[in-house]
Every structure is written in C-alpha cells, then in structure tokens.
C-alpha cells in the first residue's frame, strides 16, 4: 500500500514539476502561447485543460482496456483516443454553455481547441506507453493538467508585464514570449533533481 502511495506521489511530483508537460515535454505549446496574454483567461484555460486531461485519462483507459486490447485493436489507439477526446470536449462545451455561461463565453474559441491540445492526447498515449493502471493514469492526467495550469498562469503573469518592456522591434510579440518561456523552462530544470525516496 505504502509503495503504491509513493509511486503515485512520484508520478504526481514528476508531472507537475520535474517533467512538466510544457517545459520539459513540449506538449500543449499552442494554447500555452495562444491563451497566455491575460491572467484570467489563462487560469480558465488551465482549469478546463486539467479537467479534460483527468477525464480523458480515465475514459481512454477504460476504452483501451475493455475494447481495444480485448479485441486486439491496439493499432486503432490514435483514432479511438482522438474521437473520445473530441466527444468529451463537445460534451463539456454543451455542459458549460448550459450551466456556466460566464466561463463558456470567457473561454470562447479556446474551448473547442482543447481537442487539438497535444497535452490531452499526449497524456493519454503516455499512459498507455508507461503501462499505467487506472489510478496511475488518473493521477498522471490530473497532475499533468495541474502542471499545465501552473505553467500557463506563471507565464501569463510574466507576459502581462512583458508588454511594457522595451525590446528590439523584431523580437516584439511572439519571439520575446518564446525566449521568456525558454528562461522559465530553464528555471523548471532546477526541479529535475527532485526524486522521491522509496
């Protein structure tokens, strides 16, 4: 039991800090750069992505275990997973529209775009590659999402101030944002020495 807990803890710590999805695995860069101009939309996006990643990990684990593996259809993984994710996002969109219209309008175009967020498909594929069981997958999905949330909120905070900085004209906008992200990735590398003693 305790070794299981330590295992889960090390997965969580790795997903949030040491192997952060954005800064060390390069998954989910597009929304990371696209939705980080303002702190509050970044927060909303991060929460939505965390939610979808957790849910997608759980559902795709079930789909993989009980349908694909059972009928020897593992080669259909990519197609099956992306369909599951697309329908999940569609479902969440309808749910938010009905129950939380404020958040729905705030997220706008970025909500359907979660479908094509590579962090979501990436976490699902990594779960399968690492042979995680149900609990591990769920933890990896949620904590991976939390890592994304942490990264995008920190980045949005820096970027809001970056606008007022005086930088060379050709670096304005995207390039300076990328350099900022690079420096943040450098600081996140400091976590790579972290390991859990088990």
């Amino acid at each position: 039991m305790s070794s299981g807990l330590i295992n889960i803890f090390s997965i969580a710590l790795g997903a949030i800090l040491a192997n952060n999805f954005i800064f060390s695995q390069f998954l989910g860069i597009c929304p990371f750069l696209g939705v980080s101009k303002k702190l509050d939309t970044a927060l909303g996006m991060g929460v939505a992505v965390t939610f979808v990643m957790g849910l997608a990990s759980a559902v795709c684990y079930a789909v993989n275990e009980f349908i694909l593996v059972k009928f020897n259809l593992e080669y259909m993984q990519t197609v099956a997973f992306i369909l599951v994710i697309a329908s999940l996002v569609q479902f969440i969109e309808m749910f938010l529209q009905k129950s939380m219209p404020a958040l729905y309008t705030a997220l706008g175009i970025y909500l359907p775009l979660i479908t094509t967020n590579c962090a979501v498909l990436g976490v699902v594929l990594l779960n399968v590659q690492n042979n995680y069981n149900f609990i591990d997958s769920l933890v990896y999905g949620i904590t991976g999402g939390l890592g994304f949330l942490l990264a995008i909120v920190l980045f949005a905070g820096v970027r809001e101030r970056n606008v007022f900085a005086d930088c060379p004209k050709c670096f304005e906008g995207f390039p300076i944002a990328l350099v900022t992200a690079g420096l943040m990735a450098l600081s996140f590398m400091g976590f790579s020495g972290l390991s859990v003693f088990g």
Binding site: F26, F174, V179, A185, M189
Partner: peptide
C-alpha cells in the same frame, strides 16, 4: 528543452 524555445524565438 530550453534550447528549443530560445532557438525558435
């Protein structure tokens, strides 16, 4: 990974 961000920027 840092290099990827910097070079692309």
């Amino acid at each position: 990974p840092v290099g990827g961000f910097l070079v692309l920027g």
